[in-house]
């Protein structure tokens, strides 16, 4: 391995080919981080807003669209390396178009909320926080896909901010939302809502305080991957640090919540959310192999709404 020559210019190799190799794998890899979160939020929103998932079919096709387009966008990480102009045009358009299937998903999620009977709890708050953060991260993503825009902010804190709006504001928010949603199924105990909402509030404020100012830092000349910065960036970096501290503090109510719940939490029963998907039809926690006897047949796993459960005529 030490003597390979493919990427070594002294021996006639090409260093940029290594960047292509890296990003050809690593760009689809960031979709691996976020696509499961998209699936989770599609499960959580209908349960807590008591409505079917809006546009299930387009949701599935838009995931396919993201997967296919995700394969042909890697060179948008390399707009300042040696990529020829025609290649940049192709990757700009391909990357911008990922916003279309992703946008469909977000419009559908908001439409799922619209007209529901939304229980304001920790799970739905984290999911809605995710929508707001991810829309912001998606908008900066489309901006970064534009070659001339990227030439200024490439490898700066702007990219750091964009990335964290997607991966922390997106994926991590949904991981928390999922924990509040499925913890009762896993343990048979409810998590406390007051501590959960406190956890959400501190996380949301801390997260935005930490990463929103970094857009400004990047635009104004702070490169990423540095341990030192210019004095004029001190104040904004300090704001960012306070946000990071708040994010660390926000895990304290979360951990206390889990500890209290396991020690003396309210029993959740099998189906605390009145959900229709199959996992809620078994006991909490589920037995070995999930079901006592045969698994039930579920025909309408997302069949929420008044026509299915005609208990309340008021909409």
């Amino acid at each position: 391995m030490l003597t390979q020559v493919f990427f070594n210019p002294v021996l006639g190799g090409n260093v940029v080919v290594y960047q292509h190799l890296f990003w050809f794998y690593s760009h689809p890899a960031v979709y691996i981080m976020v696509l499961p979160a998209f699936g989770l939020v599609s499960e959580i929103l209908p349960v807590h807003s008591r409505k079917p998932l809006f546009g299930y079919t387009t949701m599935v096709f838009s995931i396919m669209g993201i997967v296919v387009l995700g394969l042909v966008v890697w060179a948008h990480h390399m707009f300042t390396s040696g990529t020829p102009p025609w290649m940049r045009l192709f990757f700009t358009i391909a990357t911008s178009f990922i916003a279309v299937p992703t946008g469909i998903k977000f419009f559908n999620w908001v439409a799922t909320l619209w007209g529901g009977k939304i229980s304001i709890n920790s799970a739905i708050l984290f999911s809605c926080g995710f929508i707001i953060n991810f829309v912001f991260g998606g908008i900066t993503g489309v901006a970064l896909a534009q070659v001339p825009f990227d030439i200024h902010v490439h490898d700066t804190y702007f990219v750091v901010a964009h990335f964290h709006y997607i991966v922390y504001g997106g994926t991590v928010f949904i991981i928390f939302s999922s924990i509040y949603h499925w913890f009762p199924k896993v343990t048979g105990k409810m998590l406390g809502e007051k501590l959960g909402i406190l956890h959400f509030a501190i996380t949301f404020i801390g997260f935005n305080l930490c990463f929103a100012p970094q857009h400004w830092l990047g635009l104004n000349g702070m490169p990423r991957r540095v341990a030192e910065y210019d004095p004029q960036f001190q104040f904004v970096n300090q704001i960012s640090t306070i946000g990071a501290l708040l994010m660390a503090i926000s895990t304290i109510p979360f951990l206390i919540n889990i500890f209290l719940s396991i020690r003396s939490g309210k029993n959740s029963g099998d189906n605390p959310w009145n959900a229709l998907t199959p996992e809620w039809l078994t006991s909490s926690p589920p037995p070995v192999e999930n079901w006592e006897g045969e698994a039930p047949l579920v025909e309408e796993p997302y069949g929420y709404g008044n026509s299915f459960t005609t208990k309340n005529k008021k909409i």
Partner: peptide, 23 residues
């Protein structure tokens, strides 16, 4: 998002579902 959370939140006396709109 904020309008939906406010306008369509579940009030204390409500037990039913939202509208059965699938798309």
């Amino acid at each position: 998002v904020i309008y939906s959370l406010f306008k369509f939140r579940r009030r204390k006396d409500q037990i039913g579902d939202g509208i059965a709109l699938e798309g």
